[in-house]
Design a protein around this nucleic acid. Sequence first.
DNA 1: CAGATGCTTCGGCCAAGGCCGAAGCAATTC
DNA 2: GAATTGCTTCGGCCTTGGCCGAAGCATCTG
Lengths: 238, 238
Amino acid sequence: MDIGPKIAQVAALVGDPARANMLASLMDGGALTASELAYVSGVSPPTASGHLAKLSDAGLLSLEKQGRRRYFRLASPLVGHMLEGLAVVAQDGPARHRNHWRGGEALRNARTCYDHLAGRIAIAIADRLVERSCIVLDEDGGEVTKAGHAFLERVGIDLRGASKRRVFCRPCLDWSERRPHLAGAVGASLLRHAFDRGWVERIRDSRALSITSAGKEGFAATFGIKPAIEEGVVAPKA
Amino acid sequence: MDIGPKIAQVAALVGDPARANMLASLMDGGALTASELAYVSGVSPPTASGHLAKLSDAGLLSLEKQGRRRYFRLASPLVGHMLEGLAVVAQDGPARHRNHWRGGEALRNARTCYDHLAGRIAIAIADRLVERSCIVLDEDGGEVTKAGHAFLERVGIDLRGASKRRVFCRPCLDWSERRPHLAGAVGASLLRHAFDRGWVERIRDSRALSITSAGKEGFAATFGIKPAIEEGVVAPKA
DNA sequence: CAGATGCTTCGGCCAAGGCCGAAGCAATTC
DNA sequence: GAATTGCTTCGGCCTTGGCCGAAGCATCTG
């Protein structure tokens, strides 16, 4: 677990305004010369040269000599993705994801994730469905098996209306638990089903859901899941 | 285009070793107290407190008070993704993606992206298929329409074998062009089809593909696309 | 060869920011 | 109310690292 220092090294590199400007102006995949980069980053050529050396040494930029010029570009798509990640967080920074975790533990147990169910309960459901061969998941998609269709129909989860425009079954990485849960049409139907039966209720105006006593029975009967969900305090990790 | 400075601000925050250690130990989605974070980051509580204040102010961490402790966790999945991006680049740093862009312009025209086609040609194909209502894409999935099945079958693209375990049709953000192209079973079939017909060939041992003259005809006849692709030198941008 | 252009290296200046100990709040326990 | 625990604020020290001008290579042009 000494990934931290490595991350810091890269981030520190990107963390200088001059270097960040250089990288940002290369994000479209184009190539620029050392002097052009000095200009866009607002520093003198000597300073830019130093920065470029650091970025190249770290493997963030690749260099192509052409006569007396040197063209720099991002060393790989990975670098581009990393910058995008930073840009996204930088863009809607504090504003958008404030209060994301209000509701604390309740949010980890059960919540909505767009139009489907997320949190521990959702993962438990996904696990059981996989275990019973009702669905198959891999890293870029999922599918409902024949047995799965039969099962879902038997328990009264309606899939017909949903299958038109949306991907049928998709895993969605659960942030709080870092395990996949079900998204896509199947995930959406499941949530609707749970609402219809009164298994879950919205808490205040957050994304958190509370599992009703009817829900406890319902989830247990339908999927064989005990929502073993202590209300209590947030448990610190170690 | 002053995204640069914003990126720098966030990156600088992550660029300090103590802060990076804190973030890294929160990457699993758990919550830790201020003192625990001070310990994992190897600094004194006062110092840690300062760091945590900065991270919270910037919206990277969210805070939950509980009695006299303060639990910190990543403020949103976005932050987690950003850190993952940094980790990936930090991990296989200089070594793995050297020479990644050798072949330069060719790579932007056509390349493989895992098992499917990417680059300008792939985007053009995706655009045409959407235009003709052969497929429908939205942000979390895609689907082949009835007309699309008919079309693909008519031109001889085999989908039957593929549809078992994998998601059928999925958009994949093209890094060099920032537009979606087709992944999933459909994307893979398309690439196989192009190889089988000799439309594309691998360039050296890179991911770049060259479009053969048969390919130019084939893509044009099948999808109505002119691969308007100048070979030329690496073009500097402005 | 001389001159221009593109880039890098060197040396020295300077501000930003990380670090800690001491002291100050706040919440809990007895 | 006193003692304990958890965290933050304050003040002062000191290293890190960005910055530039001058000078030095390298490459192309005439």
